[in-house]
Design a protein around this nucleic acid. Structure first.
Length: 321
DNA sequence: ACCGGAATAT
DNA sequence: CATATTCCGG
């Protein structure tokens, strides 16, 4: 019974994630060649080999880097804070004092849910996703890889805020690796979030472990601490104690889920995919986005496709003393 | 070099 | 005060 509930919730969450996220149709697929074979042959262009997950992954990162580099620092007062989307500053027009608002904003669910969420059921879809502006073109070419990489390392990132989405990713990855194997570095790598440092993850992991411990500790209290808001809203990974990353040392796995599962034919396998970012990040929107396959079930096929998301945060504020 | 946990900062 | 960052020992 308990399981059912959990599963149910998962469904809910999945639905929620999908809500507002771009569908497969909205995003260009990276998996197929841009140039039709015929055309390519006609021009004697050697067809590119099929992309692998790693390739796509890499491309994704590159793209992010590019975006980051080409985005002109919006002459922020002190530094360049990316305003991914022209947020509604409407009213004032004054200084937008939204310091660490980076990733959070757009992804963070506004209101409504919270963790308690007693009422479910009716409600409505709050699909209010605004597509950002289209801009960002690789216009200028002042993309100095060196510069950005250097910046990336040197820049002082602002306090990272663990938005629900980010946390979700985190939990997914941790669950995927298995609690025991989940170490900061790996998590960081698998999350594949630009700008996320090992320290960030380590810190969060620390908290997360505490939380889990608390829960399993034997308190019948499910969500005692209101403090663990973030954590509380998320089910602790079902059983995250197994699953070893195939082989363990490599960073190139081919399969993540699906094959290794043993008799898991119950309703649905725990949806926790995510390792292989297969889609490219959005072209125009600079903010991180999650991607979820929107499949309209037809008979069978409950594959949960890749869920990719890229978040970033960081903003620079120089001043170190 | 990295992880885990406490201390410190925001 | 909660949460993220930094420091430090293993």
């Amino acid at each position: 019974m308990g399981k059912q509930v959990i599963t149910d919730r998962y469904e809910d969450w999945v639905a929620e994630w999908e809500d507002g996220l771009p569908t497969g149709h909205d995003l260009p697929s990276l998996s197929h060649p841009l140039i039709p074979r015929d055309l390519a042959l006609a021009f004697k262009i050697s067809p590119e080999p099929p992309y692998t997950y790693l390739d796509v992954n890499r491309a994704s990162q590159d793209t992010l880097s590019s975006l980051r580099g080409s985005s002109y620092s919006c002459n922020a007062t002190t530094n360049g804070c990316f305003n991914f989307k022209r947020f509604n500053d409407d009213e004032n027009g004054n200084h937008r004092v939204k310091p660490l608002a980076t990733w959070d904003h757009d992804m963070a669910e506004p209101e409504s849910d919270e963790l308690g969420q007693t009422d479910k059921g009716s409600d409505a879809k709050k699909s209010r996703r605004k597509e950002a502006a289209e801009a960002a073109r690789t216009t200028s070419t002042e993309n100095r890889m060196d510069d950005q990489s250097a910046e990336a390392k040197t820049l002082k990132r602002t306090r990272l805020v663990w938005t629900p989405q980010l946390h979700k990713r985190f939990v997914e990855v941790v669950a995927h690796l298995g609690f025991k194997n989940a170490v900061p570095k790996l998590i960081m790598q698998l999350m594949n979030v630009e700008g996320l440092t090992r320290e960030n993850v380590a810190s969060h992991l620390q908290k997360y472990r505490c939380y889990v411990k608390r829960m399993q500790g034997g308190l019948s209290n499910e969500a005692p601490s209101a403090s663990d808001k973030l954590f509380g809203s998320m089910p602790v990974p079902p059983h995250s104690f197994n699953e070893s990353s195939s082989g363990g040392g490599g960073s190139g796995h081919g399969n993540f889920n699906g094959v290794g599962d043993k008799g898991n034919h119950v309703g649905m396998q725990i949806p926790m995919p995510y390792p292989p970012p297969s889609r490219k990040i959005l072209p125009t929107t600079m903010m991180g986005i999650g991607f979820a396959a929107h499949e309209h079930e037809h008979g069978h096929g409950k594959m949960r496709m890749p869920l990719e998301s890229a978040f970033r945060a960081y903003e620079s504020h120089s001043h170190k003393s």
